[in-house]
Design a protein around this nucleic acid. Sequence first.
DNA 1: AGTTTGCTTCGATGGTGATCGAATTATTTG
DNA 2: CAAATAATTCGATCACCATCGAAGCAAACT
Lengths: 228, 228
Amino acid sequence: MKEGPNIAAVAALIGDPARANMLQALMNGVALTASELAQEAGVTPQTSSFHLGKLSEAGLVCLRKQGRHKYYSLTGSDVASLLEALSGIAMRTGMTRVRTGPKEPALRKARVCYNHLAGDYGVQAYDSLLAREFLLEEDEQLHLTLAGRSFFNDLGLVLPEKETKRRPLCKSCLDWSVRRSHLAGLAGTALLTYFLEEGWARRIEGSRVIEFSKTGDSRFRSLFSLEI
Amino acid sequence: MKEGPNIAAVAALIGDPARANMLQALMNGVALTASELAQEAGVTPQTSSFHLGKLSEAGLVCLRKQGRHKYYSLTGSDVASLLEALSGIAMRTGMTRVRTGPKEPALRKARVCYNHLAGDYGVQAYDSLLAREFLLEEDEQLHLTLAGRSFFNDLGLVLPEKETKRRPLCKSCLDWSVRRSHLAGLAGTALLTYFLEEGWARRIEGSRVIEFSKTGDSRFRSLFSLEI
DNA sequence: AGTTTGCTTCGATGGTGATCGAATTATTTG
DNA sequence: CAAATAATTCGATCACCATCGAAGCAAACT
């Protein structure tokens, strides 16, 4: 038939509601067990096992055995950004799932995207880093400037000297809610963990929502020199 | 249920091989008619219509009516980059479409690409036209010289005076098998139909293979002054 | 040892959706 | 006006695949 990459196979894999639910559940970056994923997807453990077999065979998720548990997680940030891109299209074309819960505004505000910060907060941080030339957009690539590196160092965040293609230092990730870029990659991960460890924000159990405390919020704004 | 964007719906849409083929065919940015897309996808016009209905309802493609044709194209670059992301994952996980079977050598030799000749024959013809300066490569654009126009006229092929961006006279198309360019555009189409109508070659039913007859082959070689 | 828990394999079932033949509408061509 | 072409609708068919019940395995607690 046709040559080239078989995108239909990948898409069909994500196209099943149960599997899509599982993948979206893994978007918060935490590894989950097979049964937890079954519950997330709303199917029985047998079905879950069936789906996870397919997903891991296809290389979308990877597993780590630990005792009698099997922890599944996304294989990489490329899978995560693929899912984000899908979310973007789904939002743009109005394909939202019937029940829009009260959590959605919180999701738009701040949420985890695999292992970095997304939502309004993420976009604002990204814009600020760009404006102060800590980040440089260059021919579709994103670079951390020397000033940017010292910005991270001042926070006590040491980033590796050289980056690999597999795990880039800085990467822009398109936001489905705001349709703007936010920071992914090692730097993005480092920032989010910093916010969490310093107590500026905390994760809401069982969802992707990130909630900034009052003081955390003001510190965030001062860090990125945000007006309001 | 769950809240948020319904990525499964989008993915399922792309997950069908026929639809994925159509979308990938639209990746070059050119708008294609429903029948062209049907041929690309390897399905009948009825099925194509069914799929295109779904795709346009979902907002992945948009259409422009022009006479009795309907030209379809991707709705935006976000769709294109989603497809790119999918391709990336597909390649990384080694999900390339298997193209085994006896038809492959024939496909490499000569086949249709939309509506023009591709494969070894196409590339050789292209090279010959360039060498004799019937075609001119100029800043990424391909132009038909006066000599080239008379070359076509001598064959009884009259090409329109002015070309539109939508349907250019000459266009180079990259060959997946040889990784070289071959001639597309109105001129390419005219050439292929000439070969077919003159009986130099015929299409193999149900595939993209073009089979040159013995005499057609020698005429082809003399037309393009090919050595062997 | 025996029991519970986590996960998987097997087998059967059912539903969804892709597909095409035939007929229909719309538009161009002769 | 008639014939040809482009695209669609309708209806029927068929294959695939998600789903779950039941049983099987493996690991961990008692």
